[in-house]
Amino acid sequence: MTLAPDTQDKFAEYAHPGRLVSTDWLAAHLGADGLVVVESDEDVLLYETGHIAGAVKIDWHTELNDEVTRDYIDGAGFSRLMASKGIARDSTVVIYGDKSNWWAAYALWVFTLFGHEDVRLLDGGRDKWVAEGRDITTDRPDVVATDYPVVGRDDSSIRAYLGDVLEHLGKPLIDVRSGDEYTGARTTMPAYPEEGALRGGHIPTAASVPWARAAAEDGTFRTRAELDAVYRDEAGLKDGDDVVAYCRIGERSSHTWFVLTHLLGFERVRNYDGSWTEWGNAVRVPIVRGAEPGEVPASVNRSAQAAR
């Protein structure tokens, strides 16, 4: 059973308004049948310090990723995870998290790989809920395990691999990292640990549109008109474009994937989750340094074949 959408005016402007709920909506619907609230944070202990009443925790690192392969869990693993969190195939899932919902957007994107239909983000995330003085609790939720079907993961429509990106070169590519990561001045976010990329720079032809341009001061998404100005007018995206977004490990680009897909309505947007930690280290793939997007190098077809 799914819940009716939040119909506030700001959301009505977006392509898929049902993908967002406000803090007011969530407060009014807590405890509703068919609703499961999920907290997904960068900080692995943050949920334990207090969370929205009844919310379950999903940790992106330890629960959504396979423990040995650099990949997401498979259909059986996702089924077990959902069952243990009390999520049914027809549950309305509302995800929220820290850091302007980076990890919440990332979790939503993984839910989408498994075709979970009704999954939404809390606009403004954890910070907005807390800033508004709404209740949080350290009480553990009573989770009633569910049966969740084993559904195969479909990577084809919203996930790009390295070889896909090589073939994609020449079509719109959005680099959502900070300006210094784009130019190659640094390989990690300011104030973040070194994650071991050998080279700094960006994928040839990628446009630089840092993810934060989609977020307002309070962490909520910018309005439809503001987002159109950034992604259509400035970055030049057009209806019908086939777009790939990337960052460093795929979390910030999940945020941009959400914006392009659900708020602006682009139908073919893929997140390259290997992102710079793969591309910046891969053998025989070209990079560009500096502030200009650069050209597709002539050698790239050979690389695309080698990557297959």
């Binding site: 900080d43 692995v44 202990l45 943050l46 334990e48 310090t49 820290d98 954890r126 910070d127």
Partner: peptide, 9 residues
Amino acid sequence: PPEAPTTRG
């Protein structure tokens, strides 16, 4: 800050 419990730990 309190929103960084792992770092605080």
